[in-house]
Write a protein that binds this DNA or RNA. Sequence first.
DNA 1: ACACCATAAATTGTATACAAAACTTAGGCG
DNA 2: CGCCTAAGTTTTGTATACAATTTATGGTGT
Lengths: 238, 238
Amino acid sequence: MNKNASAVPPEKDEVIYAHLHAAICDSKLLPGTRLPEDTLSASFGVSRTVVRKVLQRLACEGLVAMRPNRGAQVAEPSVNEARDIFATRRILECGALAEMQNPIPAAKLESLRALVEAEDAAQMSGNRVDAIRLSGEFHIELAALTGNLVLTEMVAKLVARSSLIIATYGSPIAVVCRHSEHEQIIDLLARSDAAGAAAWMQEHLLTIERGLRWEHPASDLQEVLRGVMANARGGKAD
Amino acid sequence: MNKNASAVPPEKDEVIYAHLHAAICDSKLLPGTRLPEDTLSASFGVSRTVVRKVLQRLACEGLVAMRPNRGAQVAEPSVNEARDIFATRRILECGALAEMQNPIPAAKLESLRALVEAEDAAQMSGNRVDAIRLSGEFHIELAALTGNLVLTEMVAKLVARSSLIIATYGSPIAVVCRHSEHEQIIDLLARSDAAGAAAWMQEHLLTIERGLRWEHPASDLQEVLRGVMANARGGKAD
DNA sequence: ACACCATAAATTGTATACAAAACTTAGGCG
DNA sequence: CGCCTAAGTTTTGTATACAATTTATGGTGT
């Protein structure tokens, strides 16, 4: 459906975009990682022109921060930004669920259940990266049930940025959604209890948010240390 | 606050972006208008590199459609996309209003009233472009009351795309919000009746949507004619 | 006269070169 | 000993050249 036809060239920039997007969302590129154009263009075997195009797209989605004359780096969501993102997700995703009055096709519910099962399996086998990715896909597919492409794309972008938040503020344990909560939402939808599903989603997203550690963000530590080193000049910098 | 400091260069691409954005939202560039890179770069006195950067940003926001090897043109929102955009606005903007529990500072309410007044004045004097723009600004400022920057930016992008929808499907009369409805929302907020404001906003957005003419979109006409000409080859094409 | 094909013009895709800015490192001064 | 300054290096910003693709044009055959 979203794949190219047979004879169409593979769209180099799309491939690079997908690679970088995945690398960021899967925490292979941690927040704050610098993304020099030369390095990327050499790695992917293209010119800086193509790399810049991809970086600008990622910047537009909030996954990459670009400062003039200072290059690109993986975005480091601030605490305020993180809270805003989750607040917006609550409004959007709950609103989407609340609007689903028509009975959901059984096939769609089934594929959602399969997604939750895969997520559960990944979590059980300790595959944290897959678990987070599948959890995100669940939220996106849920939004897609509305048939509203604009809304679905917005949720997808917020989910991607949430991966950055988890990478920055997530505690090693219990960051991912408990699969049972996802299952509960499907059950409520199967019962056509849209309001119930929305209410449950509200709690679910709040639960995720509460599981984050706003106090000890990993990357702020570096900034703090740098500030300490700059201030306490009498101390040993080495 | 958001302006550059004194000695900082004016950021050429930002200026070009602002110009194009305004031209599209003010319907100076109608949906479907082709945007050749050469023409733009000549007009603005920069190279295609800068123009492409701006076009990609506009494409990311949905104001411009870029097809591979086929260039950019002002986006022509389909009926489905238009409905999705308004549905998403209902969820986002009503959700934003519903979450405002704290009493709104009087100063902010005052500046909102000023905005409505300016919009009213523009409409009364037949200045349709200003009226639409000020109406959009009202919706954006309303979202900004949440303090949620992520949400505000999303609303701003949806409002911009709504300008395209109005340009495509808007009837010559009665496309803009009745200013009294905007005033009513402010009154409800002043009374701290968040739920009431949200309900009113829901109706308000539905009213706008109902005022559009989905039957006779101006630019679909060309497509229809093209299809007719291609099919009825025996008929008179001239 | 219409459809079809070849050629020409226009437009986009990509790479590269050079200029400008920021970062790094080494040296001198207080 | 630390800070400030300055050349050198790295990295980004922009323009331009060339290749690839699409679109427009004109000619030819039926």
